[in-house]
């Protein structure tokens, strides 16, 4: 199976925030939310020296996406096509799902009821509920699959001024992402408690990856505390949807 993945090289990243803004521009993300962010760390002492580095973050499109497992929307069958081989596959999906051929975690906006469970479940804070909409929906990074289909790069990759973002298919042995990940040099934001197979990797100086993991690797299994929406929530969501469709 293919798996789209990204490696972010902190040695190259200068923390300029272009990625976050290109994403905002491409998808008209309201300023109160983000799909793509840059947080800054340090200067701070680490066992490997003084570090001043950045956390360019986005959805990890995890191997075991907890946002998908908490989605309360009844599964429906849908047929997917492999963009490479054209092969088809039919599976039952919730409103949020992992694409069987690309590994991208996506949201079916027509079925999302805006309950916010997936937002709460994500240990990385990668999702938000867009309450600016009359009918709020969850939203997050899609790895720009719409752009990939049109032969374009993800917006953040295209704008990255130092080419710190390397994007590709992990299953493709000739891809740069595969080579870096296979070399064992890349790290992921995981911990003993939270290890759900994120597909965004980071490389960099030891002091910088040390500080990144120390500061931003999640420890809280947030998905375990997500309360399923009540019947009432679900009905209210349906009403909201009807209203905004009028």
């Amino acid at each position: 199976m293919s798996q789209l993945a990204m490696v972010i090289d902190l040695k190259r990243c200068v923390g300029c925030h272009a990625c976050a803004l290109a994403c905002r521009a491409e998808w008209s993300i309201p300023v109160d939310y983000h799909r793509n962010w840059v947080y800054r760390m340090g200067p701070e002492k680490t066992p490997h020296g003084l570090s001043y580095t950045f956390y360019p973050g986005l959805c990890n499109h995890c191997d075991d996406p907890k946002c998908v497992s908490v989605c309360p929307v009844d599964p429906e069958e849908r047929t997917f096509k492999d963009p490479k081989t054209g092969k088809k596959k039919t599976i039952a999906i919730h409103a949020t799902f992992k694409h069987p051929f690309t590994g991208a975690v996506l949201i079916d906006k027509t079925r999302c009821i805006g309950c916010g469970s997936c937002v709460e479940a994500c240990p990385y804070g990668a999702r938000y509920l867009n309450e600016e909409l009359d009918d709020p929906k969850a939203d997050k990074c899609t790895f720009c699959v719409e752009r990939l289909e049109a032969g374009e790069q993800p917006a953040c990759v295209k704008t990255c001024i130092t080419r710190a973002r390397i994007f590709g298919d992990l299953s493709d042995k000739s891809s740069e992402v595969h080579k870096i990940v296979a070399s064992g040099k890349a790290i992921r934001l995981t911990s003993k408690e939270v290890n759900i197979g994120p597909n965004v990797y980071y490389t960099g100086l030891k002091k910088d990856t040390h500080l990144l993991i120390k500061t931003y690797a999640p420890h809280e299994r947030k998905w375990e505390n997500v309360k399923a929406p009540t019947r009432r929530d679900i009905i209210m969501a349906a009403v909201r949807r009807l209203k905004s469709a009028v």
Partner: peptide, 8 residues
């Protein structure tokens, strides 16, 4: 294809 945060 690159522009910085401000350019964006």
């Amino acid at each position: 294809t690159r522009v910085c945060a401000r350019g964006n």
